[in-house]
C-alpha cells in the first residue's frame, strides 16, 4: 500500500464523537487491544486525521501515526503500535528467505508461510480471508508486515501458492518513513 514515499496531506482534528467511534472500531477489530485502548488513544486526547494518497486515512496522536484505513477496509495499526502490543494481534510467520522480499514491497506469497521457517495457525484457529494479520519473521523478534489476508490460512496451506498480502504496511515503507509535523 505504501511502496512509494508519501507525504501527508492536510491534517485535521478528529471530532470527539468520531474519535469515540474510532476507539470502538479498533477494539471491535482487535479485541485484545481493549485493555490498552486508553493507553493508545487516551479518552481526553486529540486525534488528528491525515489524508494520504490512494484514499488512505491516517489517524495520528501527537504526530505519531497509530492506525490507517483504506476506504472501508478494516482499520489497521501502524507497525510501531504492533511492536508496542504484539500479542494483541493475529500473527503468522514467514521464513527468513521471504523477509527481504517483504521489505522491498513485494506481494507476500504462500510458500513464504508454508515452508519450514514459516508459521501458520493450527487447524482449530484458522484465519479467514479479509482478516488483518501481523507478519512476524523467522529469527526476528519484531513484526515486519501488517495487512489484510487475501486468502484464508486453510487455503494457504492447501494451495501453497498465490498472493497472501499485497497491500500491507511493511517495515521501511512510505508509511513507516512518514514524518508528521
Amino acid at each position: 500500500m505504501f511502496k512509494k514515499d508519501i507525504s501527508a496531506g492536510a491534517k485535521s482534528k478528529v471530532k470527539s464523537s468520531a474519535q469515540r467511534a474510532i476507539r470502538t472500531k479498533v477494539v471491535e477489530t482487535y479485541p485484545l487491544l481493549a485493555p490498552h485502548i486508553d493507553e493508545i488513544i487516551p479518552k481526553k486526547s486529540q486525534l488528528d486525521l491525515l489524508k494520504l494518497p490512494d484514499r488512505v486515512s491516517l489517524y495520528a496522536l501527537d504526530n505519531e501515526p497509530l492506525f490507517w484505513q483504506h476506504m472501508d477496509d478494516p482499520i489497521i495499526p501502524h507497525l510501531r503500535v504492533v511492536h508496542a502490543f504484539p500479542t494483541c494481534f493475529s500473527r503468522i510467520g514467514i521464513d527468513r528467505g521471504a523477509i527481504r522480499f517483504v521489505l522491498s514491497g513485494a506481494t507476500l506469497m504462500a510458500p513464504g508461510l508454508t515452508s519450514k521457517g514459516g508459521r501458520l495457525p493450527e487447524s482449530d484457529a484458522e484465519l479467514q480471508e479479509g482478516e488483518v494479520v501481523v507478519i512476524e519473521a523467522e529469527g526476528k523478534e519484531e513484526a515486519c508486515l501488517v495487512g489484510q489476508l487475501k486468502m484464508g490460512t486453510k487455503e494457504i496451506k492447501e494451495k501453497n501458492k498465490g498472493a497472501v498480502i499485497d497491500s500491507g504496511h511493511y517495515l521501511g515503507d512510505g508509511l513507516w518513513k512518514l514524518t508528521i509535523d
Binding site: P35, E39, L103, E142, G172, W176
Partner: peptide, 22 residues
C-alpha cells in the same frame, strides 16, 4: 503503561535486527 519500548535504529529507523536489509 503496557506498551513495549522497542529500540529502533538511529540510522535506518528499523528495529536493529532488520538493519541488514537496508
Amino acid at each position: 503503561p503496557q506498551a513495549r519500548k522497542v529500540t529502533y535504529c538511529g540510522v535506518c529507523t528499523l528495529p536493529p535486527e532488520y538493519c541488514e536489509f537496508g
